[in-house]
Amino acid sequence: MKKVYYGPLLFLMSTALILTFSCKKERALEREAPVDYLEEIKSTVKNPLDSIIDTVQRDYGVKVFYQFTPRIIDPTTFFTPTSYSQALAYTNTVVRKMWLGPLKQRFPKFWAEQKPIEFLVVGSAIKFNSISSGGAAGAGLNGQFYRLGMGAVDNMNFGAAIGTVRNMVREHMCILFHEHAHQMDHKYGRGYEYDRVSRGDYYGTPGYASRTDAQAQLDGFFRNYGGYAPEEDFATTVEACLRFSKDSIMKIVAKNAKLRTKYDMIYKKYLDMGMDLHQMKVYLDSAAIALQ
């Protein structure tokens, strides 16, 4: 008689039985829309500023933010928002008339390729460790490739006499392009050669504060703050080219051969990207004069 192994047979059969019935037949995967935990409930009506923001986005491809949630600026950055009226004046005057308008008109290649797609209008200065950290604060937000932000908008008085407003806004543009230069820096890097021109000459902090701008120019920097570190050297050079005329810049770079070398590199880099810094300075002057 053939031996029947009941045990193993029973075991195999029951396992097969269990596996067959315990499995749930899988249907096609359901594709559900991802849950947006951070979504903003946009139930309020559009105000005039929202409309201007839409227009700016349509014309120049940059979306302006003036109200914030932790999704827009991450919770490790400390700041306060500005008022509705300040944000309105800033968006209209600075973002539209002074920055994106002239940029798109005069240097369309630079505008198309180097503009951020988001711009943040922030009331206070940008603080990095706590809201009450006192003096140490940034003028803007420039850590990302796709967006730029400017702080201390609360301190800008758009209701002042027009001459004062023109000067204030014109000076602000130097700082805005300074912050934008940091962005270019993040995006492309200053380059191996650039960082080695003034190697060993940088003051560090707090060393830079004890030097005047005139002394710094003899040492090879446009401003004392530019002597702080290579990244500020880069940004203050762009800033200086938009603040001073070409003649003045030539006189300053004549003071130090290293400064001349670095200026040549940056001027050329910006020219390659589609913007002549000296021409932009003139266009910014005329845009400021056109403000009324």
Partner: peptide
């Protein structure tokens, strides 16, 4: 201005422009 959004699994109420709340926050 204020904005309602959802951030940490609960709704978030943001006092989203210059206000007594945002300024008092800076006094810490």
């Amino acid at each position: 201005k204020f904005v309602l959004s959802a951030s940490t699994g609960v709704p978030l109420l943001s006092f989203s422009t210059f206000s007594y709340i945002s300024q008092t926050y800076t006094a810490a």
